[in-house]
Design a protein around this nucleic acid. Structure first.
Lengths: 248, 248
DNA sequence: TTAATATTGCTTCATAATGAAGCAATAACT
DNA sequence: AGTTATTGCTTCATTATGAAGCAATATTAA
């Protein structure tokens, strides 16, 4: 069925069950193959991509709404979610729906709540829905063109991640349970947007005393097998309270 | 006129001009007398206090709405404003308006956008409106009892301030143009919630190279007159980009 | 007029953290 | 068995921090 018809059908129900004027957009981050990835989807009949999103039920908290929306999209429960900003300018969606009748739910003025999500890449199975033809991971280095202000929303999410790296368990939520020091460093480098000295990163991470060194190595790659680590989650959380790097 | 009547009168107009279900609450910080203060107000017929707030016009961006709301409340233009969080749980305001008819604008389920504002204390003149009997500064050490979840909103605002101290021009916006090193230190101590070593704070601030030392001292107090400083705003902003304290 | 006082400006010294570099160990490949 | 790139971890020079203190000084009290 074509998009226009579907939207008009859904529109009727939407007015009944959702809070008007309020939407949620999620930037879902995953880490795989030494690359930071984002979950994007393409709507039917659209040339550009969008971020996963949805609306808030009339009797639902904002956080529950975001969880529900991502559950459908990824199949995963217990996703680490953080709201990071409101996108409330006028005319955010005007152009996109200009050919639709004014009574269409989607054509309202929406104020969107931006969430970012951190997921274990291996545990997510991207799912299309009746509105979309594609749902897939894209490297943040090679993002496609986005609809509306979704590129701006992504940029703000990444900037937030950068600033929160010392305050939120970002490594913990993006990496698999067992990971190597080079993987952790690569993740930090991508989020911070710069190369870090290997030896110094190693020394610093150990000094934070937030990692457990496991009695295993990651075999299989070429060259020397790196040691595996896991987070000592209690120590990690405790360290984050004051900020990993902050020394006043 | 009693509150109930006023609310019912205003309610009719509100449905016409505002976006439904969406409100703004502002935590306005000022610094005076070596104390961090917050602007609070008391509604007519209410025993508890509230944060300044309001609604978003149908044809108005979120940031414009927050500016407009604070302009009315403080008389000040160009207030430094940051949205920091959404408060979107159910039943945020249910109890407060339980005796009112369901068609009352204020009785809707509201999702509130939390802003914090940083103002030069000396440039603000708190103003009551037709809904309120008091509008005044309170020290954050001696906050009164708040309505609804406003205490929670305040706590989150202060926690945000703490985390953003290295990334946002918080000192610049809270202090007067000319200030002394002990004033700056006191502000940092209050926001961080801990005492800092005087000599080390002094050395560190100078090393950041964000201050201009002026050829004046603050006379009048007892004891040695402290030197006056101003921010070198270009250098300050540049330093904040990487975070004042962050060394990866 | 002078002394007392608390505060401020700034330095010193010991300790800790960082930047840059490198060496030995090693898993996979030839 | 030798080659290679990567990893684990250390060293050394430099810089930052923590703790302490000394001299300067604006006001107040004597």
């Amino acid at each position: 069925m074509e998009l226009k018809k579907i939207l008009e059908d859904k529109s009727k129900e939407s007015w009944e069950i959702y809070l008007p004027n309020l939407s949620i957009d999620c930037v879902v981050f995953g880490f795989h193959d030494a690359t930071l990835k984002v979950l994007v989807l393409k709507m039917k009949d659209s040339l550009v991509w969008s971020l996963p999103g949805g609306y808030v039920l009339k009797e639902e908290s904002i956080n529950d709404a975001a969880s529900r929306i991502l559950k459908v999209r990824t199949g995963a429960d217990d996703i680490y979610l953080q709201q990071f900003r409101i996108f409330g300018n006028l005319n955010r969606s005007e152009d996109f729906f200009k050919d639709y009748p004014d009574t269409l739910w989607h054509k309202q003025r929406f104020v969107s709540i931006g969430f970012y999500a951190l997921v274990d890449f291996s545990k997510v199975i991207p799912k299309v829905d009746e509105l979309s033809t594609n749902c897939e991971w894209k490297s943040i280095e090679e993002l496609p063109e986005f609809m509306m202000d979704h590129r701006f929303i992504f940029d703000k999410a990444l900037a937030t991640l950068r600033k929160q790296l010392v305050h939120k368990p970002i490594g913990y939520n993006l990496l698999q349970e067992k990971f190597t020091m080079p993987e952790l460093q690569k993740l930090y480098e991508i989020i911070l947007g710069k190369k870090l000295n290997r030896g110094n990163f190693y020394r610093k991470m150990l000094r934070y005393d937030i990692l457990n060194k496991l009695d295993e190595t990651r075999k299989g790659g070429a060259h020397k097998a790196p040691d595996l680590y896991s987070f000592s989650i209690e120590k990690y959380r405790k360290a984050l309270k004051n900020g990993l790097n902050e020394n006043w």
